[in-house]
Amino acid sequence: MTSQSSTAPGPTIRVGLIGVGNWAKHGHLRVLKLLHQYEITAVYSQRLSVSADIAREYGVKHVMQSVDDLVNHPDVDLVIVLTTAPQHADGVRAAIAAGKNVYCEWPLTHDVNISKELVDLAHAANVRHIVGLQRRLAPHNRYVHDLIQQGYIGKLRSVRIHVSMNYFQPSRSIALRWTVPPENFSSVIAIYAGHFLDMLFASTGWPNELSALVVNQFKEVTIIETGEKLPNSTPDQMVLTGRLADEAVLTVHIEGGKRNGSGVQIDITGTEGDLRITNRSAFGGAGDNYKVEGARGDNLPLQVLPVPDAYNQLPPSELPSSVLELAELYAAYSNDVRDGTKTAPDFSDAVRMHELINAAVTSSETGRHIVLAASES
């Protein structure tokens, strides 16, 4: 996971979008407009008027009447599934059946067994598959990975991460109503733990055992626009302890609905030095950039370690940091297509993360210490 080279000219990747909700508009459409490697050629939404508006704004040639029409269109090379988690499998299956490469947002599906089925289908069809765990490809994270690999901190001894956000309070917008039902696997733990633990473990390696406490403190959710009150059993906090390779200790705290002072802090301790990675925002708006600090030796103040320019592979823009992370994923995938490499996370990565979150829930419910499957190098 070293710094990636700037994207060189390659074949244009023609994409078709299934679903154009808030994150599609805030993130994907802006990224695809920024990156010259991509062209949006088709769009489908359950509301035709939404598709038509997107087509006018972004110059999309084809407004499709159905998912099947989109995935089978000859002008689509990559299908991008941007619906809610319970709807993902239908769009992904359709893309695979059409022999098209497919990107799906995280969570891949609401059920890990369905996600495993999609991995098998994609492999059988020999199509490329990508999942939206983009934070691992952020420049700061690739830099931290390389610092660890190059021995900056010596042997890894401990890793601690605290991620908190103002979102997922007991009062939520109607746009987040679908996050309430537990069967949708769309809680703060499913979404944010998935993103941030994937980011962390891409740098430090994965745990091989864990114990966890997963709790729900908001027993009822009120929809702000309508006043509707919904019983809520989805978790809003997770505390996890575990062990990485070579006996390194892992501590995780994911905390939704924090009113003030939220953000991200990661502390990485080694035998020779320390690293700290911080951000005032877990989501990442304009100016919410990660700061990497470090020191080698004893009782030294942490010094800012600027991320070298070589880790940035994007054209200049004013896009917010969360969107730039997504752009890094798209840039990585286009490089993979051009070079025959595999740097973009795929459905197998989604399955692995889903299994880890399930293991944390099982540990919390049973009080058991869970030994995980052997990690891959």
Rank of each mutant, 00 (worst) to 15 (best):
T2A: 10
A8H: 13
P9W: 07
P9V: 14
G16M: 07
G21D: 02
A24K: 02
G27S: 15
V31Y: 03
L34Q: 10
T41W: 00
S45H: 11
Q46P: 05
S49K: 06
V60G: 04
K61D: 14
H62A: 05
V63E: 03
M64A: 13
Q65Y: 12
D68V: 12
H73D: 15
H73M: 10
I80Q: 09
L82Q: 04
R93F: 04
A98T: 03
Y103I: 11
Y103H: 07
L108M: 02
T109W: 02
H110I: 09
I114T: 15
K116A: 06
A125K: 10
A125W: 05
V127H: 04
V127R: 03
V127D: 00
R128L: 14
G132P: 08
R135F: 06
R136C: 13
H140Q: 12
Y143C: 03
D146F: 05
L147P: 05
Y152N: 01
I153R: 12
I153C: 12
G154S: 07
K155P: 05
R157N: 02
R160K: 05
H162E: 10
S171L: 00
R172Q: 15
I174D: 11
L176E: 13
R177G: 10
V180G: 06
P182L: 08
E183K: 06
F185P: 02
S186A: 14
A190V: 00
A193T: 10
L197S: 05
M199V: 12
L200Y: 01
A202H: 10
W206N: 00
E209G: 13
A212K: 03
V215E: 12
Q217R: 12
T222I: 01
E225Q: 13
K229R: 14
L230M: 09
L230G: 01
P231R: 03
Q237H: 15
V239A: 09
V239F: 15
L240C: 14
G242D: 09
G242P: 07
G242Y: 12
L244G: 05
L244Y: 04
A245V: 06
A248R: 00
A248I: 08
V249Y: 06
G261A: 08
V264M: 04
D267W: 00
T271R: 04
T271V: 01
L275A: 01
S281A: 15
G285L: 02
A286P: 13
A286S: 13
V292C: 08
E293I: 12
E293H: 14
A295C: 07
D298A: 11
L300A: 07
L305I: 14
P306F: 11
D309K: 12
D309T: 09
Q313Y: 07
Q313E: 06
L314T: 03
P315L: 06
P320F: 01
S321Y: 14
V323I: 09
V323M: 02
E328V: 04
L329D: 00
A331S: 08
S334R: 00
S334A: 15
T341P: 05
T341W: 07
A344G: 06
D346V: 10
R352G: 11
A360E: 15
R368V: 09
V371M: 15
S377D: 14
